[in-house]
Design a binder for these strands. Structure first.
Lengths: 205, 205
DNA sequence: GCGTTGCGAAACTTTAGCGTATCGAAAACG
DNA sequence: CGTTTTCGATACGCTAAAGTTTCGCAACGC
């Protein structure tokens, strides 16, 4: 390839750093984490080998493993679903559909893996992840449910924290238990079915 | 202590193996896994240190780490909740209460941790765990829901797999997100609140 | 008491990863 | 061109842990 240039802001002499190599390193990091490696198991050598890159190229950019992981996770911008739907019902389906896709995607899964598994060993890193990724989603979901309560679409005495756990937890658990692996064989309308049944309730009437 | 005997089936010469040491090893293994260690991170040396035992004593009994973990998990007999309640509603609360307690207990948590995290690396081990621990619970829950459908307590068109994921997934997710650590600060009646809201549904009527 | 086997502690060897340094080649600049 | 910097590759010394062996002592049957 002939494209190896990067920025043209300043003009440092010499050969510019390869953006290709940088992307390969980030990708390899996310791939390995997505395959279930914890932060402790993740090794710079494995990343370098996976990326087809010398270790020097990694250490020239990041001084240690944690910095690299922070940057890699930052590249994983998971777009919040747009919630401009007509009804809360439809917005919930759209939201859960994003949850389903993330839960099936190895790349996205590693965020939760780290947040759940490495909380005690890397509290600062986990806190950064929580603030950047998890909290906005929780806030969006909470706002959506409260919108439903205000509009009368949802019951007035709704227990919002429990309802959030119900909606998200159902999808997460369902994917884990039924849709075995990345190549999911889930029903295509699973988000709709989950939302319908949760909103309606399980009891006969 | 004076009790160091084990079995009296055969009669191998020499000093008998200490049952106390064996139990200490198993306990240390379960404790460390309960603290969040994955199979890969778990080290024989850490187990020996925690158990107050020489590494020799471990290697004399188990030839490798996986064998030890299999034996340790086998010792974790998780009693299924008795479901002799009057209503499906009450049985569901009893069931979810057990789920809550297990989710908060470090010992029980490690079963799920391994089942979820090490599925790709140790498929045989995970499959054994699934058959021995997870599958009976799934079957019990499925039977309970179907009983509810048959009795008319639950809607006739109930999507049982989704309903199972809803009930269990809600509790698991709620504990993970709210009841931060082992020393939970969850509301005492959380199982009841979850079941009530799920059975009734979220919509206003 | 004697032989046998288990015990915990410690020393040993091997393996794996870290972080650094060095190498020739390559890619930019003047 | 020559200079500068990065590239991938490889080698190095270092540390931590794995797994094995050794050792002196303890607990059993005979």
């Amino acid at each position: 390839m002939t494209t190896t240039d990067e920025t043209q802001a300043a003009r440092p002499a010499g050969r510019p750093r390869s953006a290709r190599a940088e992307k390969a390193i980030i990708d390899a990091t996310l791939d390995l984490m997505g395959e279930g490696m914890s932060l402790a198991e993740l090794s710079i050598e494995a990343i370098a080998a996976r990326a087809g890159v010398g270790k020097t190229t990694i250490y020239r950019r990041w001084s240690n493993k944690e910095d690299l992981v922070v940057d890699a996770l930052a590249k994983l911008k998971s777009p919040l679903p747009e919630m401009g739907g007509r009804s809360v019902h439809e917005d919930l389906i759209a939201y859960l559909e994003v949850v389903r896709r993330d839960a099936c995607d190895a790349r996205s899964r590693c965020v939760l893996n780290i947040a759940m598994n490495d909380a005690e060993r890397h509290p600062r890193l986990v806190e950064r992840i929580r603030q950047a990724t998890i909290e906005p989603r929780r806030a969006a979901m909470s706002a959506l449910l409260q919108r439903g309560v205000a509009s009368g679409e949802l019951r007035a005495d709704l227990d919002v924290p429990v309802a959030m756990a119900t909606l998200v937890g159902t999808m997460m658990w369902y994917v884990r238990s039924e849709g075995l692996d990345g190549a999911g064989e889930l029903p295509h309308n699973i988000a709709e079915r989950i939302v319908d049944q949760i909103l309606t309730g399980l009891v006969s009437r």
